[in-house]
Design a protein around this nucleic acid. Structure first.
Lengths: 240, 240
DNA sequence: CGTCGTTGTTGCGCCAACGCAAAGTTCCGC
DNA sequence: GCGGAACTTTGCGTTGGCGCAACAACGACG
């Protein structure tokens, strides 16, 4: 088991304020593991054996309802932590994590967490900040789902994905991992049919460019306007 | 300014694992403040001068959209912390907190947080657990809003309120603070009209008993069945 | 290079829930 | 105890988006 180079992770929020010495200490407990595209990292309900930092690739977290419907909780980008159930006192993972692309993660056995926190209290405060911002984001999502209609929610979702995991390409910004209409539906609380209709509409207006599991934002600014449009206001343009 | 008796708060999750000695130390920094019904404790966007523990009463946290619509983020019950923006690294309150009933809170200046955490690291881990469960609850809410229709969401909301803040009365369980149809609409992402229709229906079926800002659950079990009912019995969409 | 599974598109009918409107009820201050 | 404000109920017309269904396009794999 090769030791991980501290410089790889020194800049991550989780390790803010740590020196190389301490980092090595922490990294000594971790293993790096590779997951192939579409393979599960862990499953909802499993006991939370490890917690993770994503080094490379992308991971999707989903929850499944008793009825079997899936909802995408979030997409994990490189540098982010996930699977921290143990840290927040859950014995089991509350969601399923799947690599949506070939991915590399650092994994710590959950059992090491208490010891690490005892030795490095900053880990707790750093994690607190991370979980805190996730709570904010989730609240924002609740507010959106409560007050906005589907088209605006989808616009927001795309813009967020682009911001988090966008890659500049010739004609705009491409979301740099495979993502289906179904995925977007599960992020925004709608159906793949409705998403497909909306994206088709945007494509014909030149706002985006689609493809199989692929989306390029050609006019992010126009999308943004669409996302922020206050419906109560009298808009200068009516839909043709 | 009277000192607060440690025994009042020793059992709270925030102070789990603390001794009387340490508690006194922490409580020395707090003031207790009373808020009259319908008065604001703090407003969204204000800077986060304090963090709070609710001792008595009930507090509602809401977010307001640019368009002016309000969404209820949560109801705070006695013993819970709120306004912990500072702890999660936010300079400003992300939501408005309003006393929905005459309430008494303990308030610590936010500036004391870093010092308290440095001295008592358990505060950070306790808060991490609290914020973690709130994140879980919010995710559950997202899943519900994504997959269930309004009636079931309202049923879930009432059951949750009853569990958190229900008071046993002669004919069932009464939600023990004033709550309007509008509030419930803002919790479930619907309109007060729809909530009113649903509650009227339930009332005529004997499931609940309503009144101005007042709800009694007469048949919690039937409500529960309603909330959990799997309507679309067939195989849902699965990811292969 | 043909076949098959997966993903995306689109037309159509329908209904849950919204929005508006108006009236009824309860509470509070003066 | 009168008047008005806040809350609730209910009817009615409209509609956004769902569900079904059929098809088309793409990619993988033998």
């Amino acid at each position: 088991m090769a030791t991980i180079d501290p410089s790889l992770v020194a800049h991550l929020p989780l390790f803010a304020g740590f020196g190389t010495e301490e980092l090595s200490d922490i990294l000594r407990e971790a293993r790096s593991v590779r997951f192939a595209r579409n393979s599960p990292v862990f499953e909802e309900g499993q006991d939370a054996h490890s917690f993770f930092v994503l080094l490379h690739g992308h991971v999707r977290a989903t929850k499944t309802t008793p009825g079997g419907e899936q909802v995408v909780v979030r997409y994990v980008a490189p540098g982010e932590t996930f699977g921290v159930a143990m840290a927040i006192g859950l014995p089991r993972y509350p969601a399923t994590a799947t690599a949506v692309d070939d991915s590399v993660v650092l994994a710590w056995p959950s059992a090491t967490w208490p010891r690490l926190v005892a030795k490095f209290p900053a880990l707790a405060t750093n994690t607190l900040q991370t979980i805190g911002s996730r709570l904010q984001e989730t609240h924002t999502r609740v507010v959106e789902m409560s007050t906005q209609q589907v088209e605006r929610r989808v616009a927001h979702a795309l813009l967020r994905l682009a911001k988090q995991s966008g890659r500049k390409v010739e004609h705009g910004i491409e979301i740099d991992f495979p993502i289906s209409r179904q995925d977007i539906a599960q992020m925004t609380g709608t159906t793949l049919h409705t998403v497909s209709r909306i994206l088709s509409g945007w494509e014909s207006r030149g706002l985006i460019e689609g493809g199989r599991q692929r989306i390029v934002l050609r006019e992010p600014h126009k999308l943004f306007v669409l996302a922020e449009a206050t419906s109560g206001e009298d808009g200068p343009l009516e839909r043709p």
